[in-house]
Design a binder for these strands. Structure first.
Lengths: 349, 349
DNA sequence: CTGAAAGCGCTAACAA
DNA sequence: TTGTTAGCGCTTTCAG
């Protein structure tokens, strides 16, 4: 803002505006006529050192004039604690899911004055090793180990002895804290949307793949029936590969089962189902009410009609991950934190 | 691997395995009976200092025994150069696009021994400012400023004077180098797929939004006709909002135009078109051949039939971005690098 | 309320 | 071929 006179002792200062390059604490101290310690104190608002308002002001001015910017490396080295949190992800672009986890973690880390060191490994364990190595070299405060889909993982050897929290995944032996989506509640919510709309013959297309999602959503489906005083008809429960093709191919059997509504394991399956129905001239929700799972934006919100579904809380998973890391185990914190999957009502019911 | 005897002078070494915590260069030097300089040289394979094979081996051993891990902060501080590259993104999860850019950049940065500091701003300029500030504090070697969709941007003030390359975006005045997709060639490739399949009445559904994509793909569409010795029929060129709804609503007019094929501005438009056709009992490609643009995996690969399209080279955009940054302007490097958009042939033609 | 000084872990001349 | 020795920029007692 203000034109700056470079210190006379600094020959060859290039030009007009404040040069951030190489301005150190010492330079600021010199210009303000105080010691480096004092500058450090005002920069960090150190409470244990009361600085006079006048001095404080002079220092601020000097900082502004010089365009001073603290050197984090030096700060970290000197203080012994870094502001880095590592996040290793097995995917980053395959689905928006991983991206949401990263966004959540980043947002929370940011708020608490930390910065995220992200590495994606694409599931390659060599890449994973070097990512972890890199993070450790940067003296990260801890590591978030995440998966783009909810599953059990083996925590890498190299992470032993470090502060780790598993995000969207968990260790069989709970050797590390973890934050996961509440699949069961999600399955229940999905089913309840249909029950509340008056449906009784509600089919469920589960995935063919063993996974926490498969078990959890199934349990939730049962929960919903039970607490509504209804009973599940096993003839209404199907298995299909968790993708468009799966939904498309199972459609005929669903129609044949006499179901008036169907809860699909995920949005892609629902999409395949839509395709089949449309080809037969059938309408959603008049001929068949549909609810999905995942809330994959590209799909769910843009189908005809827009698909009611249950969201996977990836963003919050990221947030809770860094909280768990930064706040430590805590007294009332169980090793596994379950984050709710929110129902998203659109027009397919 | 091998049980370790902690140095006798180090009282209270906790236990069994090598403790990475707090092992410094000096510790290694002591154990190997050499100076810290020597250790530094072998750790960095410093060519300007020839170290005897014996010494080298002893040092390696000491490193292994102690579980030594270099402290990057100290290294950076001391050497004056960091290995960080900043990447500011305006989205990270909204579409897989941004994710691909990040993946590409990360992959290339990694190869060259650098680590990416990613920040997503969600288009919020306050967030952007603090992200940039953070990166500058970390003394990044340079900054990649990216957009999830191809567009013109205003390079933030705060980036002035720093090494910047624009990824998937560009500055009107070319004040910074940039790497962008070759929309024109993409549009041409899309059209050519159809021409080569024998189509002559090829409709084009462009977007209603002014953008490099709109201009470029349109130019490419014309290019393809021209070089095939054909002429464009203006009655076959439509505009529609670049989403499912757009494709769905424009479908009737396309059908009415007598086109046998259509090039859609993007995959989502193609998806909407598919919806309409299916409802009318029409078939792709028999009744209408369709090609999209973007190659949005979730959509294109899973439509019935799978959609032929043109890919947006996000991964390579990321790669080229860090190359441009690390390799500098170079002699034969123009301010804007265009990366090819590869045609992806599936079954809709 | 403010300053002096000893490092944090590593690199890079320069000596030996 | 290897060791000595200044720092890099900042934090943090401990004095004054």
């Amino acid at each position: 803002m203000t034109p700056v006179h470079q210190g006379d002792e600094d020959a060859g200062a290039p030009a007009s505006r404040p040069v951030a390059k190489g301005v150190t604490l010492r330079d600021v101290a010199a210009r303000a006529g105080v010691s480096t310690a004092t500058v450090s104190h005002v920069v960090n608002d150190n409470p244990s050192a009361r600085i006079g308002e006048g001095t404080r002001e002079r220092v601020r001015q000097a900082i502004a004039d010089l365009g001073y910017r603290p050197n984090i490396m030096a700060k970290t080295l000197s203080s012994g604690r870094s502001q880095f949190i590592g996040l290793v992800a097995d995917a980053i672009a395959t689905t928006p899911f991983a991206g949401e986890i990263i966004r959540g973690a980043q947002s929370e880390a940011w708020k608490r004055g930390h910065v995220l060191l992200v590495a994606n490994t694409d599931g390659n364990s060599a890449a994973e090793e070097s990512a972890i190595e890199m993070m450790l070299e940067h003296k990260v405060r801890g590591i978030l180990y995440s998966s783009w889909y909810h599953r059990e993982v083996a925590v890498p050897e190299s992470l032993a002895g470090h502060d780790v929290v598993l995000v969207n995944c968990f260790a069989a032996d709970d050797s590390a804290r973890s934050v996961v989506p509440d699949e069961r509640q999600g399955g229940r919510s999905a089913t309840e949307m249909l029950i509340e709309a008056g449906h009784r013959r509600i089919a469920f297309v589960n995935t063919t793949t063993a996974s926490p999602a498969r078990e959890g959503r199934m349990a939730g489906y049962h929960d919903a029936f039970r607490s509504a005083g209804l009973t599940v008809d096993p003839a209404l429960v199907f298995d299909a590969p968790p993708m468009q093709e799966g939904g498309y191919l199972i459609a005929e059997r669903i129609l044949g089962s006499g179901a008036t509504a169907v809860f699909c394991h995920n949005d892609r399956v629902a999409m395949g189902l839509y395709d089949y129905l449309r080809e037969r001239g059938l309408r959603v929700p008049e001929d068949l009410a549909v609810v999905g799972f995942d809330n994959q934006e590209v799909i769910a919100a843009h189908l005809h009609p827009p698909l009611s579904t249950v969201g996977l809380p990836h963003f919050r998973l990221g947030v809770e991950g860094v909280r768990a890391l930064l706040d430590g185990p805590g007294p009332d914190r169980s090793p596994r934190t379950a984050v709710a999957c929110p129902p998203v009502v659109r027009e397919s019911i």
